[in-house]
Design a protein around this nucleic acid. Structure first.
Length: 558
RNA sequence: UGUCUGAUGGUGUAAUGGUAGCACUUGUGAUUUUGGUUCAUACAGUCCAGGUUCGAAUCCUGGUCGGACAACCA
């Protein structure tokens, strides 16, 4: 941890240099989501970066909603974004909306027109597009390009006043039609959209484009470092052109780009995530298989684990694909220290302890968390009839199998040594019950004669256990790179049909009062959390992640 | 076949002209009342070719390969 903090990423180096050279006297960042979708783990990287920078350099961070397109945006998203950022553990210094600046942005647009740096264009979007040229061939000038500032100003004011229909006119910057950077070929600043805005209502019918609005919003908020993803690198000259052309006094914000997060076995684009939701491939944005912040939260991830993840993946400019295993590592790492251990059986097999008295019940001590002495201990009830994991019994065990099989002795965790004496099968030959004898002297899990057993397995008392629904989640995609597909194939062909299995299991009574969001380690199985669907009558658990399983690995390797 | 940008173990990320390090993954071993945790240990890397230099991952030249960009989206 100490080393990681000493190690500076390239953005921190820029920041320190800027501070040292006196370009800025402080650090002020912003996280600028568009309220048209839910935040995902990629946004979380950006959030940790922006807020982390402010934390590290004693600066500030704004939450700014980039709401310049009323067609796709909604307050529903504003609320979820706020909740997610807060949940991740960050508090913004100011909450702003690009729409707060529509007045100022409009005034500056007039300034640009007056300076002869912008004009009202009456070309349709198709015409603009075909006249834009290609990277090698320059654009052909709009016939309206040389129109006088006075005429443009008049038209622009009338655009604002709602005199023209959608799409009939735009305000364009007058830059460089031959620029190899397509963004400099007279980009659009304003378009006409007669749509109610989620905050400004019907006050405006012209809306600024991202390139124009973003940098000026940064300037208004006195942002020093405007951090964004790599695809905006090409936009930087434009970002700077606007600031310079309006002749805004220094200091101006500095845009710095970093490589967005890609995760193996995951799709991250908003469009694709929306499609998964719309087509019911998942159960909503907060489906525990989704890489959304709300999905991860429901899956049982902690804010700490996500911050740790953001910390470990680092920040750089090169394209990257992070192994989703790292995210799994982070949640295990965090939950290993925090989650209380419990016994739960998700694929039950009945066990009868034949030499255990019919109505006897033992109360046994169980440690809540060996990693945390403060967590204390609890009592476990033991009875004649139990459930164990079906995988923990094999009639014909392979070499190296430490668990229960005919004639072998294992430890029931915190309880007794038991030896399998008999197997009961149904007509189909399926094992329905296993009979064991127990050694009363081994109470608690140790034999006074010092004899050892290789295996320790978990169990629940049939009489005391609570039934629960267990949702076993696996990766949503079978392919490491779901978007890479053969001709004629679709990324959705890579969806894992077994990404969710719902089973009926049994858990110890200790969990009767568990609340939505509570997290536990089911010993030897994994980390589980109580799902929001859980009720007093019916417990529902989500499997967040399995434990590392070196036996399973050995088996698959053969 | 334009512009911008990048290239370090399997995956990420450091080293800013001076011993290529860290994490995850993987292998092996120890400990263990979770085949978990923890601990130890091992494998494995500078895209290529030239040049500058006592010395190059780092600087220069030329290649190669990857990514982004031609929405009235952000």
């Amino acid at each position: 941890m100490k080393n990681e903090n000493l190690q500076k990423n390239f953005i921190e180096e820029f920041v320190e240099e800027d501070l040292q050279k006196g370009r800025y006297t402080h650090v002020h960042t912003r996280f600028p989501p568009e309220p048209n979708g839910y935040l995902h783990i990629g946004h979380a990287k950006s959030i940790c970066l922006n807020f982390g920078l402010a934390l590290k350099y004693n600066g500030k961070t704004n939450l700014r909603f980039d709401d310049t397109n009323p067609v796709t945006e909604d307050t529903e998203y504003v609320d979820s974004i706020r909740e997610d950022v807060r949940w991740l553990g960050f508090n913004w210094d100011n909450e702003y909306y690009a729409s707060d600046y529509f007045g100022q942005l409009y005034e500056w647009a007039e300034v640009l027109i007056q300076k002869g740096k912008a004009y009202v264009c009456e070309l349709s979007s198709e015409e603009i597009s075909t006249m834009r040229g290609t990277p090698q061939i320059p654009a052909t000038p709009s016939p309206f390009r040389e129109r006088s500032p006075e005429e443009s100003l008049d038209l622009f004011r009338r655009m604002k006043n709602g005199e023209f229909p959608d799409g009939s006119k735009t305000l364009r910057a007058k830059i460089d039609l031959a620029s190899p950077n397509m963004h400099m070929r007279d980009p659009i600043l304003y378009r006409i959209i007669h749509v109610k805005h989620h905050r400004t209502g019907d006050q405006w019918c012209i809306y600024p484009m991202y390139d124009y609005a973003h940098g000026e919003s940064d300037y208004i908020e006195k942002i020093t470092h405007s951090i964004c993803t790599l695809e905006f690198e090409v936009h930087r000259p434009l970002y700077e052109w606007f600031l310079a052309s309006i002749e805004l006094p220094l200091p101006r914000p500095r845009q710095i780009e970093f490589a967005r997060l890609n995760l193996s076995y995951t799709v991250m684009s908003k469009r694709k995530l929306l499609q998964l939701v719309k087509e019911n491939r998942v159960n909503g944005w907060d489906d525990p298989r989704m890489p959304t912040v709300c999905g991860l939260r429901r899956r049982g991830f902690t804010p700490e684990s996500i911050r740790m993840f953001a910390d470990r993946i680092g920040v750089a400019k090169r394209e990257n694909v992070i192994d989703v295993g790292l995210l799994e590592f982070c949640i295990r790492e965090d939950l290993n220290k925090k989650a209380n251990r419990v016994l739960g059986v998700i694929n039950p097999l009945k066990v009868v302890i034949t030499n255990y008295p019919e109505n006897q019940v033992d109360e046994l001590d169980a440690i809540n968390n060996p990693e945390d002495p403060e967590a204390g201990s609890r009592k476990l009830s033991f009875g004649r009839e139990l459930y164990i994991e079906r995988e923990d019994f094999m009639e014909v065990p392979p070499k190296g199998y430490f668990r229960l099989s005919p004639g072998t002795e294992v430890r029931l965790r915190y309880a007794y040594f038991v030896t399998c004496t008999n197997v009961v099968k149904d007509a189909q030959g399926e094992i329905v019950e296993v009979h064991c004898t127990y050694d009363p002297a081994s109470k608690g899990g140790n034999s006074p004669d010092g004899r050892k057993v290789k295996g320790t397995i978990h169990w629940v008392s049939a009489k005391h256990a609570i039934e629960a629904e267990i949702r076993l989640y696996d990766r949503l995609f079978m392919s490491e790179t779901p978007e890479d597909v053969e001709e004629g194939q679709d990324w959705k062909d890579n969806i894992n049909p077994d990404s969710l299995k719902v089973v009926k299991g049994f858990v110890e009574p200790y969990l009767a009062n568990a609340k939505s969001g509570d997290k536990f380690q089911f010993e030897r199985l994994g980390y589980f959390c109580v799902d929001a669907d859980s009720t007093d009558k019916k417990l529902v658990f989500n499997r967040t992640v399995t434990l590392k399983d070196s036996w399973a690995k050995m088996v698959t390797k053969g």
